[in-house]
Amino acid sequence: METIASTMNAVHVTAPGQLGLVEVDVPQPGPGDVLVQVKACGICGSDAMYTQYGGIPPRQGATPLGHEPAGVVVAAGADVEGLAVGDHVVVNPMASADGIIGSGGAQGALSGYLLVAGAREGVQLKVIPDHIPWEVAALNEPMAVARHAVNRSGAKAGEKAVVFGAGPIGLGAALSLKLRGVAHVVVVDIQAHRLETALRIGVDAVIDSSTEDVTARLIELHGEAPRSFVRGTRPDTDVYIDAAGAAPVIATVAASAKAGARLSIVAVHKNPVELDLGGLLTTELTIALSMGYPTEIFEVTEDIVNHWERFAPIVSHTLPADQALEALELAATPGAAEKVVVTFG
């Protein structure tokens, strides 16, 4: 086991639009605590938003970043049960006693170590097998976000689904749909390399919405919905998931939805979206909004452990910890990368 350092570098938002590496003390665990050495931490789109805003209220001053960690337990207090030095773990950033890790709390995971106070396996931490690559283990948090969107959709085995947006959350949702037995999953995007990744993880079909009529293609892929009060021919698609956050997605769903279809929106829409409720009335479309992961943070871990090779293509770039600031810049540059993960030696 590596020697535990006394200080570490942590990525902090230091001012609006500014990031820095700040040297801080490595926290010391008490009797009920564990110390986790961070081995990998993914970068989320919200990290760029926090940087732009200059932090996360109500926290004042420097704000630590990083909320997608995986690591190894390097110290455990005498009262800790179910966790031992050497355990590989994924972390629930929302269960930290000192605030959400990397999202306004006192700690961020773009650092060498995390202190987990009152540590309980299955609450703040989940032990994973040693063979899971660290960069794949670091997908646990965003994949939990994707799983919640699928749970909110009510998708069931044997149904047909379409996911708009082939970024990390959309791909995670598509994988979750397939792993729960959804019969046919389509992914829609406008970037060829994203659609190629979707096919690599095992979706049934992809649609390039910049060149193809999405509704027409869904009818080809999913067949025609049975006749109902809904006017016009509609695809027999049961579930729609919006992981793109673009207004045309909502318009496409409105034009496509059959009677009884469900739409789950996990994407952040930065502008108001027009929705013709009168026109949708006969569809009885169910719309569910999805945020975070109330129960899914470790629900998704088993899927990652059992199918880590299918999740691995979601990671587009890995950069070492000494290039953490460059990694954040890369992740914030539109079109430059998909999922960037920072790895620690």
Rank of each mutant, 00 (worst) to 15 (best):
T7K: 13
P16C: 03
Q18I: 01
L21Y: 12
V26Y: 06
V26L: 03
L35Q: 01
Q37T: 02
V38E: 00
I43Q: 08
G45W: 05
M49W: 09
Q52G: 12
Q52Y: 14
P58G: 12
R59H: 09
T63F: 01
H67G: 08
E68W: 12
V73K: 00
A76E: 00
P93E: 04
M94E: 13
M94R: 13
S96N: 15
S103E: 13
G104A: 12
L115I: 02
G122P: 04
G122Q: 04
G122S: 04
L125W: 14
L125D: 03
V127W: 15
I128V: 09
I128H: 15
I132K: 00
V145F: 08
V145W: 11
H148N: 06
N151V: 00
A166C: 09
G172C: 11
L175R: 08
V182E: 05
V182T: 11
V188E: 11
V188L: 11
I190N: 05
A198Q: 00
A225L: 09
P226M: 03
G232C: 05
D236M: 05
Y240G: 02
T252P: 07
A261C: 04
R262S: 07
L263M: 05
V266N: 14
A267C: 06
A267M: 08
K270H: 15
D276P: 15
A288G: 03
T295K: 14
E299Q: 10
V300S: 03
H317T: 06
T318V: 05
G335V: 11
A336G: 10
